[in-house]
Structures are given as structure tokens and as C-alpha cells.
Nucleic acid binder design. Structure first.
Lengths: 260, 260
DNA sequence: ATGGAGGGTTGACGCAGCGTCAAGGTCAAG
DNA sequence: CTTGACCTTGACGCTGCGTCAACCCTCCAT
């Protein structure tokens, strides 16, 4: 007659595991000796080894009892089911591994490489760290909504950085938002540049295809993101409204300048 | 301002997940509106998307906050650690899969193929199902204790089945244990055959290398297994003692026959 | 005004497979 | 008699939420 620790040692499991199998009814409770200790016979050892064999093979404990007294065909069927689950789980973990392998840099969080390349170019033309991070967060919102279409848009955005006016704009904005000045006079300069760019884009008809108007939420979110990041963004939008433009990432020409 | 379900939908997670992230402090609780509803801004959306990106990559929730504000080198280090854990887990599951693939038949539970081949031969020479299962359970105990040496022993056991006396023994035992008769007269015949075989083995010196005497427990267990499986096994051992042999799977010649 | 559908809120249990105290009773050896 | 190694039950912890339960809020159609 074995004690619980001898049983566990023989089968290569922990004492706690044996007691757990008792609790869930997988291994029957044995007789107790005079002092209340569990005493195990040889059949218990064999049962426990069978249980461990199945458990080590990935069979859930809840199914082991059924499998132990199943006919060969049902057993084989159960094996196939469990093997399928194991395969799925392995696959899941492997996609996790490929995902994690692409998280090398901080910028690539949730962003395709085209966008991180664009952000690198932004840095290269003189945008500040804060500016780039703000842009990055905006693109994260875009990527979440249009994960496929974002790739199409990047070449155009990247090409825009060849325009000296755009470069100038990003530098000015970087300086503004890196400073502490809440009422920076350069805000007006930035607004002028943006209005000018908007005018050009409008003339070129670039706003037309933006009329698709899928869903307002993402656009509103991107606007809000800027506002939340820095109150001066709101001031900038106000200046834009004075110049006849509304919106922020999705501009529209206002019918007439507001009077306020 | 978004409600919790809008936020969750945008980030592609469940409402419950968002609340869970609040509970564990991963995502800060937002302001509430007049009626107590949570109201989210754009930064919450971005945070949530970042969290999901890491979580989908297999990063434990408890580490995500640290990773989100880690410098690139610490970030990369954490990535390596997590990737290692993923790799280990995948490996574990894959060994589970190879294990489970070998569990085709019921006999192979915890047994190497050499043993199942031996069991098949037992069936072939006329051993009953009960008999084979009892043998199988015994071998499970052996395999648990000497997983490596068991392979060496099988050729000898298999060769023994060429002996007509052994074949006769297994058939007689099968008949006895398949019947209901508690005091079957064939028990004596079986004992005679076993004594005869023991005598031959003793003369051939086959018991000598069994003197290694590693550990009594497994031998005792195998004896006990037979006793637990059928009370007639005890009667058989008694008959063996009368013929001058003790033990069951590990026999010894008794100095003199007991008088009882 | 009312009633119902479809949001939202907190609180709590459940899952899988044990690990790990806690607080005691038992056994064998020195 | 003490000491240390085992045994007992009971209960919480871990991971990442799913799933009630019981109740409140809002909006729209009647």
C-alpha cells in the first residue's frame, strides 16, 4: 500500500495533481488508513499513469475519463478532435510569433511598413518627435479603419513631402508645439500655409474623391485626437475657419466666412 | 465622444475586454457623462489599439503597460523574452501532438510498440481479452519504472511464447479467469506448469541477473495488481508456495515448503 | 404618457490545471 | 520528547476575459 507521495512519485506527477484528480472525480478516492491517510493499490498507479499519459498528450482532464472507456473508433475520433485543437492552438501561437517579430521599433505598433517609412521621412525633413508621434497616432486610427486602403494612400502623402511648402508647414508646426507659448504668432503662419495648400488641392480636384463619406467617426476621431493632444490645435482650426476652411484632416470649403 | 461599445467596435475588441483593461489599470478610466456612462476620446481609441496589437502578439497584459513606455532597447529585450516563451509553448504543444499521434490504439497507452507487439502475440496464442489487459497493465507499471530497459526484455519474453508450455499456461489461465468458478480445479494445473517453468528457468540460471534488486516497490506493485484484479490470483500464489516458489513476477525458491 | 428595445452600470461566478500558503494531525527516528 | 518529514482539508491565485444577474438610461413608436 502506497501513500499519496509514493503514488505521485511513481507516476511522475505532483501530490497536488493527484488530489486535484480526486476532486474532479477523475481518479477515485482510495480507502483511508486508521489515521485518515489515503492508501493506494496497484490499480490506482496504473490508472494514474494512464491519466498522465493522456494529459501529457494534451487531452483535457474533463475528457480523459470518457476516453479511458471508449471503444477504439470513438477513441480515435476523440484523438482527431484534440489533435485538431492542438494544431489550431499552435497556429495561433505561430501567428503571434510572426506578429511579435514585426514589433521591432516603437513606431511599427499597429502600422504597416509604408506608414513607418513615411514617418521616417517626416523626421528627416525636420518634424519634431512630438509631431511625428502625433502623426503616428493619427495613422493608427486610419489603419484600424482602412487597413487595406491605407497602403494606396501613402505614395501620395509621401510625394507631398517633396513640396517645400509642406516641409515648411511641418517645421513651423513642430516649433509651435514644441514650445510653451499658448498663443504663438506662428500659428497664423501655419494657417496661411495650410489654407494655401488647401486651395491648391481644391483647384486640383483632390477633394472630390474624399466625398465617399464612409463614416464620420474616424474623421471626427482624428480631429479630436489633435485637439486632445494639444489645445493649440483647436486654436489652429479656428484660424482655418477664419480663412474659409473647416475640418482638419478632411477639409471642406465653407460657404462664407463665419462672422464670429 | 464615444460610448464603450463604439470604442470596442472601433478597436475590434469586446466591451468586456475594455472593462477588464480598466479593472487591471491597463487602460485609464475615462470621464463619465451625466448618467454615469463612460465617454471616450480619441486618445483612448489609440491606446486601446496599441494594447490590442501587443496582446494579439502574445504579450501578457501585465507587461503591456511597461512595454508601451519602454525605450527601444528595453522594448526589444522584452520582445525577445516573450518570443522565447512563445517558442517554448509551441514546442510543448508540438511534443503533445507527436505523443497524441501515437495513441492510436487502446493498448499503446503509455506503452512502447515492442510491448504492444508482445500483447498482440499473446492474443494470437489464445489469451483472453481480460488476460491481455491484465498483462498490459502490468507492463504499464514496468514501463513507468524502467522505460529504457523494457525494450531489452521484450525479445526474451516474446521468445518464451514459442514454448508450448507457456502457451498452454496462458490458455489455462485465460479460461480460469474468464469463468465464474472461484475454486477452479485448473488452478492446480496452472500452478504445476508455472512451477515446472520456474524450475527450468532456475536451472538455466535465468534468475541470477534478477538479483539486481533495484527497488521492491515495482515488483510488489505488479504482484498486488494481479491480486486486485482477481482474488483467484492470490489462490494461485498460495498454490505456488506449496510447490516451493514465492513471489509472482519475481520468483524465489523457498528454502523449504511451508507447512500451513 | 407609456412601453419596449437596445444601450449602459456594478458585482460576481466560471473556466483549466494545478501552485502555494495556512493551520493543523501523524509517523518514524534519535 | 523532540524534530522533521508526511499527511489532512480549505482556500486563494493565476490568465483573459465570457456570461449571467439585477438594475438604470435613452430614444423611438405608439
Amino acid at each position: 500500500m502506497l501513500t499519496i507521495s509514493q503514488l505521485a512519485a511513481y507516476a511522475g506527477v505532483t501530490v497536488r495533481a493527484v488530489r486535484h484528480y480526486h476532486q474532479i472525480g477523475l481518479l477515485p478516492e482510495p480507502e483511508r488508513d486508521a489515521s485518515g491517510y489515503r492508501r493506494y493499490g496497484a490499480t490506482a498507479v496504473v490508472s494514474l499513469i494512464k491519466i498522465r499519459t493522456l494529459a501529457d498528450a494534451g487531452v483535457p482532464l474533463s475528457q480523459i475519463s470518457r476516453m479511458l472507456d471508449a471503444d477504439p473508433s470513438a477513441f480515435a475520433e476523440a484523438i482527431r478532435t484534440i489533435d485538431g485543437k492542438l494544431r489550431d492552438e499552435i497556429e495561433r501561437l505561430q501567428t503571434s510569433r510572426t506578429h511579435i517579430a514585426q514589433l521591432t521599433a516603437g513606431d511599427s505598433l499597429a502600422l504597416p511598413p509604408e506608414v513607418t517609412a513615411y514617418l521616417d521621412r517626416l523626421r528627416a525633413i525636420g518634424a519634431s518627435q512630438r509631431m511625428v508621434e502625433a502623426e503616428r497616432d493619427g495613422w493608427i486610427l486610419v489603419a484600424a479603419r482602412w487597413p487595406d486602403r491605407i497602403v494606396e494612400w501613402m505614395p501620395g502623402k509621401s510625394a507631398a513631402l517633396d513640396d517645400p511648402q509642406v516641409v515648411r508647414l511641418y517645421r513651423v508646426l513642430s516649433e509651435i508645439f514644441d514650445g510653451d507659448e499658448q498663443d504663438d504668432p506662428r500659428l497664423a503662419e501655419a494657417a496661411d500655409i495650410m489654407a494655401c495648400l488647401a486651395e491648391q488641392a481644391y483647384a486640383a480636384g483632390d477633394f472630390l474623391h474624399a466625398e465617399e463619406a464612409d463614416d464620420d467617426i474616424p474623421h471626427d476621431l482624428i480631429d479630436a485626437l489633435a485637439d486632445e493632444a494639444d489645445p493649440r490645435a483647436q486654436r489652429l482650426r479656428e484660424l482655418m475657419r477664419e480663412r474659409g476652411w473647416s475640418g482638419w484632416n478632411r477639409m471642406e470649403r465653407l460657404a462664407e466666412p463665419p462672422r464670429k
